[in-house]
Write a protein that binds this DNA or RNA. Sequence first.
DNA 1: GTAGGGTTAG
Length: 519
Amino acid sequence: MSFPRLIQSSDEITNYVLLALLKGCGRLKALRHGKCVHGMILKHGFRSHLPIMTSVLDMYSNCFRLQEARKIFLEIERPDAIVINGMIAAYFRCYRPSDAVGLFYDSPSKDVGTWNSVLSGLVRISNNYEALRFFKQMVCVGEKSDVITLVTVLSACGSLAASCNARQIHGIVVKHGHEKHIPVGNAIIDMYAKVGEIEDAYIYFKNTELKNVITWTSLIVGYGKHGLGIEAIATFQQMVIAGFVPNKVTFVGILSACSHAGLVRQGLEIYRCMTEIYGIEPEMIHYGCVVDLLARYGQLEEAWKFITTMPVQPDSEMWTSFLSSCYFHKNKEFSKIAMEKLLELNPEDAGSYVLLSNVCSWIGDLEGVAKARRWIMNKGIVKTKAQTWIEIDRTVHGFESGGRSHPNYDIIVKYLGDLLERIKAVGYVPNIDIVVQNVDDNLKEEMIRNHSEKLAIGFGLINTKPGTRIVIVKNLRVCSDCHAAIGFISKMEGREIVARDSTRFHRFRDGKCSCREHW
DNA sequence: GTAGGGTTAG
């Protein structure tokens, strides 16, 4: 039903119609239409209808209109838990966490949803560590969690990349008997993949009978993040055989898996499948994957042809990805074009300024270099620092690139120096930049207790089990090959090292990243 | 049948 018709025929306005309209306006962020519906609500006397007023609040919240949402909230005489939860969500959505938490503690009526609102709000603003602490508090005061709590906590845990927490939360899920809920299972698979335990993600996947398209997609995405392109493709094929229909997210996952594993031919074939067999209209993100797939492996002409024949205009991310491939493959002609396009579109992104400065310096455009540096200075653009976390004895330790703030810094440096001497003594030559972050006494004790050695190298820690052959990759930053700065090494298995950056894992064998295995 | 808080994405 169209708006004009609805407005003219008052006899058709029911609370159900209004609720549906509000939901639609919120989803589409259609503020103007939403205000119109709000007006109708007032005109037709639904002012004291609690579900409707909750939905009005939520509509404004979805449109990021905090003042309007708050006004509605204050006008509601006796707000129940659901209204309060909506207001908490609105505060988080508009980056006002302290107001949200304040409302939580002031609120007289709380239900599990109130706790969940804060929990998911913290995850929304990427404060996953606080989210985990909040969940602990929830457990301590005896508040019972539901499936939504667990899905949210599992997601926080995955983002924190703390595998000890991961197992604990998984344990809680089993204890509460929530494993049968598919989104919970999906969140478990996603979490294990994100904390580096792709085998555990697979084991859970294999053992659960309850699967939907997201279950399969989560595993495929997980394989992609681990550079395991062949496994991602195999899973995709099994998914199709099992009768599940891949959606647009599945294709983003599989295409990026192919791209990061160098499976160009297979990736293009899958892209063809997506459009021709599944009839999925490609979105910018899919086009971006294809451009990346081609350009990353040097097929710059093909990538260029693809870009110029796409039915949509490339966005700045696509130009950044293309430019970084052109730079990597040392193609000046395309680099210049991509750089111009990028400058037209994207004056804000810190990452591209750094790339631009590098490209200018390479092609000898000293003026460009100076300009890029001036922009960085003037705009106060700061490249986001690499961060990582690790959990020791239930405490999550955060690390920041270049951070030297730990009180025991000197002791740690000495400990690592000694350890390196021992490594050299058994015949390995560590040829890497060692940047000690911070390690505390608990960690040191843990090392002694397990007869294991944890090395803080690069941005984080290496964990070696007794008897593991220590292989130092010649240069930890070798993976700038695949356009990624390496974060920390999460595993060493024989001659294989698994390292991660902020988005995915890289497998190195003899100093060569799996991203380049299939060239 | 009416409202809030949750899972997959370069």
